[in-house]
Amino acid sequence: MPPGDRANEKATAPRVATAALVPVQLPPMSKEPEPLDDPRRGDVDEWGRSERMREVARRVYAPLYERWFRVEWEGLEKIPTDGGALIIANHAGAVPSDAPAIMHGIETELGRPVYGLADQFFKGAPFIGTMWARNGGVVAHPDNAYRLLREQNQLVLVFPEGSKGTGKTYNERYRLRRFGRGGFVEIAMRAGVPIVPIAVIGAEESMPILFKVPALAKALGIPYFPITANMLALGPLGAAVYFPAKFKLRVLDPVTFPDVDPDQPRYSRSRIMDESEAIRQRIQEQLYDMLRHRRSVWFG
């Protein structure tokens, strides 16, 4: 067929209707394909977490958990044993001591992994970033949280206060900061998982910040540069050694959103802020209640 005819035929042929480059909705995968050969050597998962590394870390951390902080849980049974859940807690200590305690406690008691969402600062830092990732640290990106919670049904730990919580000085202890912009509520709604709040006491006293040096923080590119009581008492060793404050953790009743559908493109901002504030209030009240009953910082 000469090219000319072909061109005419093309021009009269029905045109393929295509949306430009806007992602089209495609049908879900109809069949599960055969699993491919996957010659892996290590056990580092797609988030960078290694169960073997966690095993070692848990063994190293256990004496600290049991003898030093003498961690005591209340209401651990409220944490779901299966399905995704977003665990949130108040955040404290210059180098936060609450995150490892919560992750260790849940992993040993419930036997399921916990992924801790944190600022991208950790991923960017050499050595620390790799250790952090191998131990279950994941960059706090909404897509990451959604995939973990909705698609992989994992437990995810996040501190909504972020570095505002750990960066507060000792005179402001146990006073919760703003819970970000309520992003954790939005993620839980989108993923259709419950939020499990935890109130933690003890972490504030394990490494209290006396004052901060903003110039140094800026020069080093870190969120804050603290001068802690530990540093004054122990010198440079104080950057790594916690005071043996007694840790108490209280798991509060999970918050669910039965009236909200998951996978919506947008959620009501006012609803998100209301829920976020309500959860913050509950944790704050529980903290006051726990402090009311605490006789000693060191012995509980």
Binding site: P23, E46, Q120, V138, V139, D143, R147
Partner: peptide, 12 residues
């Protein structure tokens, strides 16, 4: 970059 999601989608 460190800020990236771990899995980029096409509309990301």
């Amino acid at each position: 970059s460190p800020k990236d999601p771990y899995w980029f989608r096409e509309d990301g």
